[in-house]
Design a protein around this nucleic acid. Sequence first.
DNA 1: CAAATTTGTTAGAATGATCTAACTTGTTAC
DNA 2: GTAACAAGTTAGATCATTCTAACAAATTTG
Lengths: 219, 219
Amino acid sequence: MASTTEENYLKALFNLSNSQGEVNLSELAHSLQVSLPTANSMVKSLQKSGWVNYEKYKPLLLTPAGQKEAALIIRKHRLTEMFLVKKMGFGWEEVHEIAEQVEHIHAPKFFQRMDEMMGFPTIDPHGSPIPDKLGRIQEIHYTPLSSCKPGQLVQLTALTNSSTEFLEFLNSRKLALGTELRILSREAYDSSVVVSYEGHMNETLSEKVSERLLVRALE
Amino acid sequence: MASTTEENYLKALFNLSNSQGEVNLSELAHSLQVSLPTANSMVKSLQKSGWVNYEKYKPLLLTPAGQKEAALIIRKHRLTEMFLVKKMGFGWEEVHEIAEQVEHIHAPKFFQRMDEMMGFPTIDPHGSPIPDKLGRIQEIHYTPLSSCKPGQLVQLTALTNSSTEFLEFLNSRKLALGTELRILSREAYDSSVVVSYEGHMNETLSEKVSERLLVRALE
DNA sequence: CAAATTTGTTAGAATGATCTAACTTGTTAC
DNA sequence: GTAACAAGTTAGATCATTCTAACAAATTTG
Ligand SMILES: [Mn+2]
Ligand SMILES: [Mn+2]
Ligand SMILES: [Mn+2]
Ligand SMILES: [Mn+2]
């Protein structure tokens, strides 16, 4: 059984993997805030457990077993975040840190009950999909707000970044998942986008913000 | 900050301490299922952190700081158990193992919300008191059923043992906290007690059982 | 009280997770 | 295509947590 440390490595590998499923050691080390040799030695040990394919100087690859293991931890993380928001009244900006700890609890019944109480949700409070019990993830392809056309009506459905600071920024502008946005214009110079939505007639969103907002076209 | 391991040692020391607050190393080692040298070395390290008073060959003593630390972990444990029963529908026999893990989560807001959602309970699902936010425990003195007199009407209010097996035994007899029991007789030979309660006219409880049931006299 | 038993201690080792320093391999930029 | 730089590896150490084996102190028992 994976230790808490190993589980955090698996999760990081999963989240960092590119289209070919590859991860660089430095990205892994940076993401977990450990030194390169630390990450290197842990990767070797994950290989011994059959979760990572590792060859000297080559990019890291999760094995299918490693992918499943990671997805099941991410499942616990996202179920927890949703439970904290839907059943315990937390804000979406408060739940990640707590879920980071709760995800390591070994108690299938606990997460099963959360799931049941919420009616088996498929997305977390930030719009990310919740892997199923077998570790399968439904891939969703949303459009970044930054690549939408003026005039379009869209609905905010997910985020590419869920840092507390970003979520607090969205709170301050009353932007939440489900908010319907009309794209009024786009500034060519700095790629900022002007939108209107309930209670906000002329809100300017910087490129940094609009590329982190994933939307679904409504019209 | 205490590690999970240290927290479990503090909790064990707290729970094992006798009327003078003393604990023997062997009891500690046995209770945590570690060897004597392991417990010995951990106790020395807890002393360095200021949580234990330790002198060679003397019984162990928690310092006031250690007592508070322990009580606050026990608070998280018992709040969690109550939350699992009251808000998530678990049986009292299912919650200890989960709480044993959840108690180590560092997220004051999380336990604060549990507390609020339950209306600030003062006992856990097994009748044990929940320490307050300052680590103070309200001492309650209940009577074991084994020392009650025939004829008495009493109410089951707590347990001295909360093992899954014992709780499942109580479930099988439909005995729960709050159950009112009439003591019909007591067998001098083996100290067993015969009681009646809703749906059970003549239930014989062995000494082993009746000394683990804590009651409050109703008449 | 002395022997037997229980309880506690020390020494020495292993494992997991981490670090810094030094080195090697791979990649990028003239 | 070499020099500079980035990325990855190895060596060697530390700290936490655990163990077994050997020994010492304290307690119980006849
Ligand atoms: Mn999260
Ligand atoms: Mn985590
Ligand atoms: Mn418990
Ligand atoms: Mn615990």
